[in-house]
Amino acid sequence: MFKSKFIIAALAVVVGLSSVSAQAAEGGAPIQKQNWSFGGIFGTYDQNQLQRGFQVFREVCASCHGAHLIAFRNLMEPGGPQFSEAQVRALAAEYEVADPTADGGVRPAVPADRWPSPFASDQDARDAMGGALPPDFSVLAKARGVTDPFPWWVTNYFTGYQEGGPDYIHALMIGYHEEVPPTAPEGFVLGDGQYYNDYFPGHAIGMAPPLSDGSVTYEPGEDGSTVPETVDQYGKDVAAFMMWMAEPHLVSRKQTGFAVLLFLGLFAGLMYATKRKLWAGIEH
């Protein structure tokens, strides 16, 4: 009897909490979940992957997409791509930022400055991009998700699955077709300046395929190891980088979490023993 009450209560909590699952990707094909280094409770960012992802972002995405919440200094902070201070200073100096106190109103950026947006305003961006606004990347990886069919999303509360955004971004990168494929919904017509994508809600996306195999050249690692220069790999790398931009303290947050949960486990045990001892003489 008592057990069944607990089960019902637990169910109430789980169902209640989970009825607002991520639904950003509806109207697209089911998304393949990827095996991210930062997934799961032990996950951490792969520094090399973040550096590659930054390269893709900088060379490809950044010409249209901003990341106005990111400061150059973030790129050298622990838990992220962790470039050296000299690298970040040199990188920042390549960009100009507005500064009303400087001569001419602009000056070279310093690590404390935010990443400059490619357009002066959203309206400028729309005008330049044929009406479609390229979204800012700062928190985009957390503003997208995937929908799991009932009842599988319930498990997400126990696994802590938070990688729907990167899954979606990677899928979007590999989801382009040169022409409308036979899998398209019946009667589908692609508008002017639109491209067909399996995973974009409604399939008609205003962004041309940004990546092609070999379009970004990765430096070989110090040990001579290489990473495939494919759209699939670029997509994974840039999605990982975007997740880091959206959640830069993920690694330290999880580390603190382990300490907290271990502490609470120990403390709960002690509390229980104390409570039992205290109540030992009471009939209840």
Partner: peptide, 27 residues
Amino acid sequence: FAMVLFMIPFAWFIFFAPDILGHPDNY
């Protein structure tokens, strides 16, 4: 004691799934 027990799922969400109870659109 019950408070400490209650803090365990509380901490789980804070540290391991802080956004799962919210909606992605709010980002």
